[in-house]
């Protein structure tokens, strides 16, 4: 039974991974943008932090590793690629309810499939090219690596819950793109994926650090760069995952009968 369920989702993930080239022939352009963005961000940090030593507990080397890893694991930290937005927009979400698999788990399988493709063709090559960027991405210890992996898994759990909550809000408000664009903007700004939260002015970083978005990127990145207390950060991630998942489930239970499939 478990193996049959796993197999169904494995096939979904595989279809998504292999179909990515056909469905998104512009993926290379997207990868180019991401590499350019990381180069520009790193040059920005070099301009700002060169010869400044440690600023708010962060050195130039730490920030470069932080920025680099944020790009390598961007998919996982943003938790996008489930296809939920498109499914709601083009109406194909109606078909998901008819398939012999859970609706959420179908989206999750699809997301993992997309991640697999990108991890293979973008993240791993980028990691291998890290010396060219002047970044040493080796973890300081096996424990730091283990804690990072644990934190990244929790970041995905929190991110998935947020993805589902936004999906539910789309159904409630019937505004697909606007809500997802807001989700992307909010996540980028509040998660600490673009800039370390410690560099936010007016003490905003400390406030944002308590929000669920910070559990999606800032927490694992701070753990990897050893600029935060792993115990505190992981506990906060666990709390947010425990709070957000029931909310996502309740919202979708309420939503299910409000779902209207117009087609796109």
């Amino acid at each position: 039974m478990i193996s049959a369920t796993l197999n169904k989702h494995y096939k979904t993930a595989l279809m998504e991974a292999t179909g990515h080239i056909g469905d998104s022939p512009l993926f290379l352009l997207d990868y180019m943008l991401r590499i350019l963005r990381v180069i520009i961000l790193m040059s920005l940090w070099q301009m700002i932090l060169a010869n400044k030593g440690s600023v708010d507990g962060l050195t130039l080397e730490t920030v470069l590793v932080y920025t680099f890893l944020a790009e390598v694991f961007r998919q996982q930290m943003e938790c996008r690629g489930s296809g939920m937005e498109t499914a709601i927009w083009d109406g194909s979400i109606a078909n998901r309810f008819l398939r012999p698999a859970g609706v959420f788990s179908q989206f999750v399988a699809q997301m993992f499939g997309r991640w697999f493709f990108e991890f293979l063709f973008f993240s791993i090559p980028l990691l291998l090219l890290s010396p060219l960027f002047g970044v040493s991405i080796l973890p300081s210890s096996p424990v730091a690596l283990g804690l990072f992996v644990m934190s990244l898994a929790l970041a995905i759990a929190v991110g998935l819950a947020i993805e589902l909550i936004f999906g539910a809000m789309v159904v409630l408000t019937s505004t697909v793109y606007i809500l997802y664009q807001i989700r992307d903007a909010v996540t980028t700004l509040l998660s600490g994926a673009l800039l370390p939260l410690a560099f936010y002015p007016w003490g905003l970083g400390e406030v944002f650090g308590w929000l669920p978005f910070a559990s999606m990127a800032s927490a694992p990145l701070r753990i990897y760069t050893e600029t935060g207390d792993p115990g505190h950060l992981i506990l906060l991630q666990v709390i947010w995952a425990a709070v957000l998942w029931p909310i996502a489930h309740v919202l979708w239970r309420i939503n299910r009968e409000k779902l209207v499939s117009h087609g796109g």
Partner: peptide
């Protein structure tokens, strides 16, 4: 993001 950096 850039505005925050300039401010900080």
């Amino acid at each position: 993001g850039v505005l925050f950096l300039a401010e900080r």
